[in-house]
Each structure stands twice: as structure tokens, then as C-alpha cells.
């Protein structure tokens, strides 16, 4: 009786082994951005973030601050207001400031949780010439 009731389990195990791991246990990570991290770019009207995993939209928080201006490297961090929109795939986000960014150094910080429920976050900087 035990043997016959276990055969579906064996089939399950076999399929599991065949499908193999590739376990998508990954926390959400920033995989790319436009402008890229540490890039020097000419004109920026929006900032795009691409993530490795689908994000839970309500957990997403982003911040854009200007940390430097030409001739004033130690500019006190100044928050830039922007409108944000999640991409249709749930893995990307676009921050659109009201005006194109003036020359300076900018820092983007984000926090969000993916389907694995872990809250993640990171920051990167770029320069507008």
C-alpha cells in the first residue's frame, strides 16, 4: 500500500530533477539604468531603472537628489521632484522630472520588495554635463 501510494511522489521527484534548479530565489536587484551608473551624459529628461525581478508596486520608493553642481562639488543634497511610473512588466520604472535635469551630479536611491518579499535597495550616481 505504501509503495503504490508513493509512486506519484517518485514521479514528482523525477520531474523535479529533470526540471533542475535554476531556482529563482533572487532578491530584486537593479540590473540596468539610463543614464547608467557613473555615466556622464548630455541631456536627461527621464531616468529609467530596470530590475531583475517583478516588484510589488506599492513597496517601490525612489528618490532623486542633486549632490553637486559645476563649480560647487559639495552642493547640499537637493531633492528633485519627479513623476514615477512602473513599466507594464513590473520590472522597470521611469522617473520623469518636471524639467530636463540641469548640469550637475545626481544620485538615485530606490527601495522595493519583489515577489520573494525581501525589501531591497541601492543607489547610483550619474553626471549631467
Amino acid at each position: 500500500m505504501i509503495k503504490s501510494s508513493l509512486s506519484p511522489l517518485a514521479a514528482l521527484a523525477a520531474t523535479a530533477l529533470a526540471l533542475s534548479p535554476t531556482a529563482a530565489l533572487a532578491h530584486a536587484k537593479l540590473v540596468a539604468s539610463t543614464p547608467a551608473a557613473n555615466a556622464k551624459v548630455a541631456k536627461v529628461t527621464s531616468v529609467q531603472l530596470k530590475f531583475s525581478e517583478k516588484l510589488v508596486a506599492s513597496t517601490v520608493k525612489a528618490e532623486l537628489v542633486m549632490t553637486g553642481m559645476p563649480g560647487m562639488a559639495d552642493h547640499p543634497p537637493m531633492k528633485i521632484a519627479f513623476a514615477s511610473a512602473m513599466g507594464k512588466d513590473g520590472k522597470s520604472m521611469t522617473l520623469t522630472p518636471k524639467r530636463a535635469l540641469v548640469p550637475g551630479i545626481y544620485k538615485v536611491t530606490w527601495f522595493a520588495a519583489g515577489a520573494d518579499t525581501h525589501r531591497m535597495g541601492s543607489a547610483f550616481a550619474f553626471t549631467v554635463k
Binding site: 520531474t15 523535479a16 526540471l19 533542475s20 535554476t22 531556482a23 529563482a24 530565489l25 533572487a26 515577489a115 520573494d116 518579499t117
Partner: peptide, 8 residues
């Protein structure tokens, strides 16, 4: 919870 597709 994090495994995807049929394997998940």
C-alpha cells in the same frame, strides 16, 4: 514562493 514556472 520564489520558484517560477512548472518547477515552482
Amino acid at each position: 514562493a520564489a520558484s517560477e514556472g512548472p518547477a515552482g
